Simulated assay, not measured.
Amino acid sequence: MNQEITRPQHPHLDRAFTVLLSPTRRGTRLARLLTVAHLGAWGLPSEAEKAAHIVAELAANATVHGRVKGRDFQLVLTVGGGTLRIEVTDTRGDSVPPGPGAVKPPEDDAETGRGLLIVEALASHWGIVPGPVPRKTVWAEIDLVR
């Protein structure tokens, strides 16, 4: 169920891509690769690396913390109004991460726990939207440089 909407009369504006992916390492990798490919096709290759890191972290969290057997996670990329918006929706609305400003660094020797810190560092804004039940969406926005 890939869906892309493009309005060519406004380059770099009003574009959207949505895809459902399996909550696996392969799905996470595919989310990152699709992000880079679409941003390149949309004429935004300079934002692709930053966006790929954000997508990788959010998709990994959806796979590890938001996984429900038999249910996919959704990746949505939209560009409009000078902003790239990334949304990852999973089906574990009961497993909500700490929000912006509330993410604590892990212990120095911890092997995990840095994903949302990376998102917070790279994104202009980010947050969490609950629902509809049983879902939640973690989103991040990158202000596009003109």
Rank of each mutant, 00 (worst) to 15 (best):
A59T: 02
A110M: 12
G27S: 06
G101V: 06
T28P: 00
D90K: 11
A110Y: 10
F17I: 13
A37S: 09
L44G: 00
G101R: 04
R92W: 04
P97M: 05
L116Q: 06
D72A: 14
V76I: 15
G66K: 02
P100R: 06
T112Q: 09
G115I: 04
A31D: 02
A41K: 11
V64F: 01
S46W: 03
N61M: 07
G27H: 00
V103I: 14
G113I: 10
D94K: 03
T24P: 01
P45F: 01
A60W: 01
S95F: 07
V119R: 06
R25K: 03
G43R: 08
S46Y: 01
E87S: 15
R15E: 15
F73I: 15
A62W: 00
G27R: 02
L21T: 00
V68E: 14
T78C: 15
T18A: 12
R29Y: 03
K104I: 14
L20Y: 03
K50E: 04
L20C: 06
P100N: 09
T112A: 09
T35W: 05
D90H: 07
E49C: 06
H65D: 11
V19Y: 02
A16L: 15
T91S: 14
A56G: 11
T63A: 07
G70S: 13
E57F: 05
R32E: 04
R29T: 03
A59C: 06
P105Q: 10
S95W: 07
L75D: 08
P106Q: 12
G99E: 10
T18R: 13
V76W: 03
F17G: 10
P100C: 08
V36W: 03
V79L: 15
R114G: 11
D72F: 02
K104M: 10
E57C: 08
K104C: 14
T83Q: 13
V55G: 08
L44I: 00
T28M: 03
V103A: 05
D108C: 06
P105G: 11
A37W: 01
E87W: 05
L30T: 06
Q74P: 01
V68Q: 09
H38W: 14
S46P: 03
